[in-house]
């Protein structure tokens, strides 16, 4: 029953995430809120100069997205490993 419920919950989460892209009338460039926040600071304080720069920046958007994908992959891979161990344990005990 919980397995069934999980699929419904995943479907609902997917819908919530996809809705802004699918629904008509939701415009925008889908920029990151962190960048918008930084822009709002710049607008409120045009003379503000960041007093520290990142030590290293991904040289391009491609490299940046690769690193984000890597972050997600490492996390998801490990989660899958743990969940897989649990599920395997269940089958063994059922036999």
């Amino acid at each position: 029953m919980t397995i069934n419920r999980s699929w419904w919950l995943i479907a609902a989460a997917t819908l919530i995430i996809a809705a802004p892209l699918l629904l008509p009338g939701i415009g925008g460039e889908f920029k990151g809120s962190d960048d918008l926040g930084t822009k709002a600071i710049a607008a409120a304080r045009p003379d503000y100069q960041p007093w520290f720069q990142p030590l290293w920046k991904p040289p391009s958007v491609e490299i940046e997205s690769m690193l984000f994908a890597l972050q997600a992959a490492i996390g998801a891979g490990f989660l899958g490993f743990v969940i897989g161990r649990r599920t395997a344990g269940k089958n063994v005990s059922d036999r």
């Binding site: 802004p20 415009g27 925008g28 990151g32 809120s33």
Partner: peptide
């Protein structure tokens, strides 16, 4: 980073 109804991502 996921799209939201405000037209930005977070």
């Amino acid at each position: 980073k996921m799209p939201s109804v405000t037209g930005s991502c977070s």
